[in-house]
Design a protein around this nucleic acid. Structure first.
Length: 984
RNA sequence: GCCUCGAUGGCGGAAUUGGUAGACGCGCUGGAUUCAAAAUCCAGUUCUUUCGGGAGUGCGGGUUCGAUUCCCGCUCGAGGUACCA
């Protein structure tokens, strides 16, 4: 009776599917537990062994929770809109929906093989109209909302309109566009519908605005920052220019503070929280207005150090600042324009790379210091960024290193306003231990007091106000792509109108070509049926557009993060056609208890989804404003690449030899290189013959007098290498026919490859497919091995050879239930020792699961099985609980054993065995006896022996005396139950 | 530069509040079984040693009876972020 994993796994996977074993109920008396994975983008390459790591961990957790009596929701789906499918469509004309469908099939087949306990009845696909209907619905909701800072939440736009018509916008405390004009209730009523809509757009949580984008005219598309390399497009190397485009944005900045505060109440990894905190970038300071001498205009600056305002000796504007052209004097005009031209040419990347070069130009104009009334020069410099703050800074060279460097470079005065601080070499930026001086009413004040006082003064005298600034920008929500959610938006007189939600979804139209149109419109510009009929309420042919009842639809699509920002809520009620999620479902499931996924989403998906959650919470649709209580970032699994080393001959002396391809085994190569180093060090001729090392091959005999230069490592497919790093040469030659005539210089009859850890990738031939592993060792082995590799959160290398360990563990486990070739368990009472093994395993595994330390559980199982094997234990009272505790990790074998133990129902919801500490109580302890902290030998004493008795016994022992060699110990430390330490 | 995380045998890693460093597995060595191989089983495997022992968790200090664990200073590596006023 062998452990036939192929049969067992296929049977149980079928059983689970047929019986919907893992279907979660929305009505249950059991407590809920929601375990979520970040859903995958179904790429054409399929899964490699790195992908399922997090899924296996979450599956173990989900299965464990079922044993603990929870109603577990463990769904899965696909983030199926995305660029690769679109690019494939551009190249082949194949509709992305077809490619996506095929890829999803592959993913599903691969996932099913690993034996996950997903509730597939709740599957979502972001590209499915039945799903993106709700993405469009949320978009509409955002459009119809504004952010009321007074109530600190999103409110219906109707409430804003009501305020406008009763009192205008004078007292509105809202998050809005910056440049809003004040109007009265009377004004509002007199505005045309169009004017009113324009004003409302400045307050809506999603709004249209002119945004700068990276436009690539040759590709006819907008590029993301990471698609631009050295100022040109990554694909094709075309020029990229900054262009303003009308785009949808999301007013995420309204939630900056709440996004920051929310981090305190969720159990997410600290590095992830830190990067969100940095991304939001809160800084406290003040807005201060500086008048420009001889001009109407003034310059607003944001500063985090208003306490250093008396240290201002100049101002710096970003070259793009709108005031520059107005205030520059004639004398400086030429220099300023030349400078602006020069900086405009430099890409952001260049500017970034070149931090050390200090550049700038004096505008000729002066600002008036609001407190001292002194004139300070106004410069422009590209170290000031147009996109941050106001694009202008008050420069305090004594307190800011960049200002300091700038001042030094241009010989600008550096007044010192810090008591007893030397600023002759560098600026002094420390806030804590400073006392302000040379600063009028701030003299003698430390940082904190100075801050309070100066903000008070600024506000009193009307020069500005205290302000909290965020680095976080509103998120651009338009993409000039085809394969994304269409907006439920049509345009009337250039103003956006929402399509009423009962007509959603607005389905992605068919297009002939997936590229932008010739006149630079997004791909949807190719659609012929893409107009909205406001009478029939349906999408109709473009030809019918009359701009009276039939209007053009939005041509942009939504970005990748749209569909993933609330998918976890949809899982709760995935098949509900009438609601995003029913009250009943969402009040039962509420939030995710455990979310597992990669850290690469730290500031994208994981920030935007928190924003949408808070918004939907404000709207009363969701009961909680943070959706995931606990989050874990699983580490990457890297590949262990294998290399052969081709010997490259220098100077084509021996032409016949030079033509040959010779591969040298790893350690021989190392020897040759070492040898050469020695030779070179000794100053001898580099040409020295290494044939001593290589006598074994006749090839090298001929090579005796030739020069030899170096070795080129060439990637070998990892499947051609065995556990001892030995290359299967025949298979290698078959794989790379161009090397079929190559010579191999062996060591001890083997070709040993080199190994290196790299990212798993096709081009490095180190990708390992989980299907292969399941085929060869089974899904249970794969699951155990992925966990056994190391801590979940760390990145770790994959080496298939190690899997034999967990595989033989499963075979050993199986054998416990077999006697004389047949399945048999005894009904005898278990011994003390057997119970001890069982219960320490239960204890350890439960602790491990609580700590997400799955790797140590696998070790624990191995130890248990080793011990039970040694005890020849085949008792039901031990093996039955053992089967249950192993089930979350290796569910197929557990189900099979459970059935053979005589059960007719699936093991999946059987109660987890209860740990009983009584079985672990020991009567004696083997004390480590250490000398000065070093353990030298062990002595066994009864557990209840007291301190003094232990000390006496230890001191009397001959080994203690031998160790002391007549010395008298200074001190003897006895910690009962732990250790004895003798000092001296 | 800043923030975060990490560094333990040939390799992956273990050591729950400071208390026996190297669990478990891979690989390797030797043995059993076999016509042989696979599979399986047994023993050994940090380094060093004059076989008594000695040293040892990236490096240098410190606290402690005792430090992989705590503190200070560094080196190296990974990830994030960046002229952020």
């Amino acid at each position: 009776m062998e452990y036939n994993f192929r049969e067992i796994e296929a049977n149980w996977q079928q059983y689970w599917a047929d019986n919907q074993t893992f279907k979660a109920e929305n009505n249950s008396d059991k407590p809920k537990f929601y375990v979520l994975d970040m859903f995958p983008y179904p790429s054409g390459a399929g899964l490699h062994v790195g992908h399922p790591l997090g899924y296996i961990a979450s599956d173990i957790y989900a299965r464990y929770k079922r044993h603990k009596g929870f109603n577990v929701l463990h769904p899965q789906g696909y983030d199926s809109f995305g660029l690769p499918a679109e690019q494939y469509a551009i190249q082949t004309g194949q509709h992305p929906a077809i490619t996506t469908e095929a890829n999803i099939k592959t993913y599903r087949r691969q996932l099913d093989k690993i034996g996950f306990s997903f509730d597939w009845s709740r599957e979502v696909r972001t590209s499915d109209p039945n799903y993106y209907k709700w993405t469009q619905w949320i978009f509409t909701l955002l459009f119809n909302s504004w952010y009321n800072k007074t109530s600190d939440k999103a409110e219906d736009i109707e409430s804003l309109i009501a305020i406008f018509s009763s009192e205008g916008n004078k007292n509105i405390n809202a998050v809005s566009d910056d440049d809003i004009e004040i109007f009265t209730a009377k004004d509002w009523k007199n505005y045309s519908e169009e004017e009113q809509q324009k004003i409302l757009l400045q307050y809506r949580l999603t709004y249209l605005s002119e945004t700068e984008v990276n436009w690539c005219p040759d590709l006819g598309t907008v590029l993301a920052n990471d698609e631009i390399v050295n100022g040109v497009s990554e694909r094709g190397g075309h020029t990229v220019i900054r262009k303003k485009m009308m785009q949808w944005s999301m007013r995420i900045t309204a939630y900056a503070q709440r996004l920051l505060e929310g981090l305190h109440k969720i159990d997410w990894p600290q590095p992830l929280k830190d990067s969100q905190t940095n991304w939001i970038g809160r800084s406290e300071g003040a807005m201060v207005t500086f008048k420009v001498d001889g001009h109407e205009e003034s310059i607003d600056v944001f500063t985090t150090r208003p306490d250093t305002i008396f240290g201002v000796s100049f101002m710096t504007l970003a070259p793009e600042h709108e005031l520059v052209s107005k205030i520059t004097t004639d004398a400086q005009k030429e220099a300023v324009e030349a400078y602006i031209k020069k900086t405009a040419k430099r890409s952001e990347l260049e500017r970034m790379a070149d931090v050390k070069t200090i550049s700038g130009v004096f505008t000729g104009a002066y600002a008036i210091h609001p407190f001292s009334g002194e004139k300070v020069q106004i410069w422009i410099g590209d170290y000031v960024l147009a996109g941050y703050g106001t694009g202008a800074v008050m420069s305090v060279p004594c307190g800011d290193q960049r200002d300091y460097d700038f001042a030094k470079h241009f010989n600008i005065e550096i007044p010192n306003i810090f008591e007893n601080v030397d600023i002759s070499e560098e600026a002094y930026a420390d806030k804590e231990n400073t006392v302000i001086t040379n600063s009028d009413f701030l003299n003698g004040l430390p940082y904190k007091k100075a801050m309070k006082r100066i903000i008070y003064e600024i506000e009193q005298r009307g020069f500005g106000y205290g302000k909290i600034n965020y680095r976080l920008r509103d998120a651009v929500f338009s993409r000039q792509r085809y394969w994304g959610e269409p907006f439920p938006v049509y345009y009337k007189n250039g103003l956006p109108q929402m399509i009423a939600t009962q007509y959603l979804p607005i389905v992605l139209p068919k297009v002939e070509k997936y590229l932008p149109t010739e006149d630079g419109k997004p791909p949807l510009g190719n659609a012929l049926t893409w107009a909205w009929d406001t009478i029939k309420n349906e999408v109709v042919s473009n030809e019918l557009i009359n701009n009276e009842t039939i209007f053009p639809l939005e041509l942009n699509t939504m970005p990748g993060w749209a569909g993933s920002s609330s998918y976890f809520n949809r899982y709760m009620d995935a098949n509900n056609p009438d609601e995003f999620v029913s009250k009943e479902a969402v009040n039962y499931w509420r939030d995710v208890d455990l979310y597992i996924g990669g850290s690469e989403h730290a500031t994208g998906h994981l920030l935007y989804s928190r924003f949408w959650q808070k918004f939907l919470f404000d709207k009363g649709i969701l009961p909680v404003d943070e959706y995931a209580k606990k989050l874990i970032n699983q580490g990457m699994i890297t590949g262990t690449s294998a290399f052969v080393y081709r010997w490259e001959f220098g100077e084509g002396n021996n032409s016949e030899m030079a033509k040959k391809t010779i591969f040298v085994s790893k350690n021989l190569m190392d020897n040759i290189i070492r040898e050469r180093r020695v030779i070179e060090k000794e100053g001898k001729n580099v040409k020295v013959d290494p044939s001593d090392l290589l006598k074994q091959t006749k090839v090298l005999e001929a090579q005796k007098n030739s020069k030899w230069s170096h070795f080129t490592p060439i990637h070998v497919d990892v499947s051609l290498v065995n556990a001892s790093d030995e290359l299967d040469i025949d298979a290698f030659k078959k794989w790379r026919p161009e090397f079929s005539d190559a010579e191999f210089i062996l060591e001890e009859g083997k070709y040993i490859v080199g190994r290196e850890i790299e990212k798993m990738s096709k081009s490095k031939y180190n990708v390992v497919n989980p299907d292969q592993i399941c085929e060869e060792y089974g899904a249970d082995s794969l699951r155990l091995f992925e966990m056994f590799l190391g801590p979940l959160e760390q990145s770790k290398p994959w080496k298939t050879s190690g899997i034999s360990g967990v595989y033989s563990f499963l075979k050993k486990l199986w054998k416990l239930y077999i006697t004389n070739g047949a399945f048999f368990v005894s009904e005898d009472k278990p011994t003390k020792e057997e119970l001890k093994t069982l219960h320490k395993t239960i204890k350890k595994v439960e602790e491990d699961i609580a700590n997400f330390s799955f790797n140590t559980s696998v070790s624990t199982f191995m130890i248990a099985v080793n011990e039970l094997t040694a005890l020849k234990c085949n008792k039901r009272a031990i093996l039955e609980p053992l089967t249950i505790i192993i089930e979350p990790y290796a569910p197929h074998i557990a189900e099979e054993l459970w059935k053979r133990l005589g059960h007719t129902e699936s093991i999946s919801t059987v109660d987890f065995p209860i740990f009983n500490p009584e079985y672990l109580i020991e009567s004696t302890k083997e004390y480590p006896i250490s000398f000065n902290g070093k353990m030298r030998f062990k002595l066994e004493f009864p557990m209840d022996m007291d301190k003094d008795a232990i000390e006496k016994a230890v001191m009397a022992h001959e080994r203690t005396q031998a160790q002391l060699q007549g010395r008298i110990p200074k001190k003897v430390i006895v910690v009962p139950g732990k250790i004895v330490n003798i000092v001296g």
